[in-house]
Design a protein around this nucleic acid. Structure first.
Lengths: 232, 232
DNA sequence: GCGAATTAGTAACAAGACGTCACTAATGTC
DNA sequence: GACATTAGTGACGTCTTGTTACTAATTCGC
């Protein structure tokens, strides 16, 4: 809080430099990975989040979609704001204010733009300080919302096994879930429906395929709540 | 989503006009009220949220604190970002981008600045469209966070009765809670401790006063979760 | 004074959610 | 055919939650 005599002044806009910084997340090889781009030589960090200023008249999410396409070569499945950042932490383009946006995209082999690469969230290279803060907030936001909104389904093809789905939840939440509890909670949530198809993945019993089909839920429904750890 | 060939461009900041728009909320006479300021004549709406551009180098929350002081005459008890808004909806200062921030302040008779007034959230006058959207998001954000962070205690004096506290939760959540469940959940949360003092409010049995005293909670604690409706 | 009204606080119960274990089922591998 | 591997489920004990119904301490009306 800053000390300042409380007297009214006419508010007025001032010119500011604004950036949209995007945390593109995708499941890659059993971890959650973020898409980083190589920075121009000269900065201390070699990598940063993809970012740009919004075009005149362009919405923030639209800008984030454009920026994601520019680095990923594909449209993200879901965009969500994670906050505005105006602290003094260094931004690669020296923007006064950054709007952080998290984008989710399914795993795909689609060609990345030259200079873009996936990094496991657990092993990110050094980032400009503001970008580091945005990544941290993005993972927090994702973990908070995964129970409330069908984020996980955006990362899967239209038909998937319950083990696939559980794997996505575990990536997004960052912890293991118990199989029986997961399925029971999923039942109660009325979010999926079984199909007639089964998939055999080599070894083990074939798994039934499900599709995302949220049904009307009576009363005020609570989200899917999963708790525990360690499946045997 | 906008259609645009995905080829890489050097990102660059551009000048934008930025506003910080503040939703100051306070309990007033059994409802949640927002603080509005009279707008300069000429605009279609007579009222708007207090707002201003951040000063050079000023953090967003710092700006929100300053703006709140300018309209309320006091420092808010808590500030929380609710999002960035860059759609085409009209802003009273024609800012390209607004950062919405919600401020909570206890009920107080403190003198408002001339031109500022409290309005029950249930009966707001017409607002500039972007401000209307910010108010709606602010109430959503407050309801989502009231379980996770001690918002409610910021709206009460250091000592309060459990009925006072329940009333604040009901205002913030916008629904009635069941007395026994509320108290049991509060017990489990280890957020308050009883004092030796009691308060008699006229009729009825005197109530014990409590103070906010979050104790270390073993393991990963879940927030206070209240569910039900209708107290008899 | 004394009962009715009013607000505070709690015990206890029933129903449900949750964590866990142990099992059955269907496939591939050796 | 034995075994490893993954899928899927039934059942049980415990903890959580919604609800009812009660006790407690005060003011108000008469």
């Amino acid at each position: 809080m800053r000390e300042r005599p409380p007297h009214s002044m006419k508010p007025a806009v001032r010119k500011t430099t604004l950036a949209v910084d995007v945390v593109v997340l995708s499941p890659q090889a059993d971890t959650l990975a973020a898409l980083l781009v190589r920075t121009a030589p000269g900065g201390r960090e070699r990598w940063s989040l993809p970012w740009d200023a919004p075009l005149p008249g362009e919405g923030l999410e639209d800008a984030a979609a454009r920026i994601t396409e520019g680095a990923l070569g594909a449209t993200p499945a879901l965009l969500e704001q994670v906050g505005a950042f105006a602290d003094v932490r260094r931004h690669p383009g020296d923007a006064d204010v950054s709007v952080g946006i998290v984008a989710l995209t399914p795993h795909a082999e689609s060609a990345l733009v030259a200079g873009a690469e996936w990094f496991s969230l657990a092993a990110l290279p050094p980032l400009p300080p503001r970008h580091r803060a945005i990544v941290d907030r993005a993972t927090t936001v994702v973990r908070q919302r995964v129970d409330q909104s069908p984020l996980a389904f955006r990362l899967l093809p239209p038909m998937f096994t319950l083990s696939d789905l559980q794997g996505i939840y575990e990536l997004l939440l960052g912890r293991r879930l118990h199989k029986a509890s997961f399925r029971r909670a999923l039942q109660a949530s009325y979010l999926v429906e079984p199909t007639d198809e089964w998939r055999s993945e080599g070894r083990g019993r074939p798994a039934q395929l499900f599709r995302y089909a949220p049904r009307k839920r009576r009363g005020a429904r609570r989200g899917v709540r999963f708790d525990l750890f360690t499946d045997g």
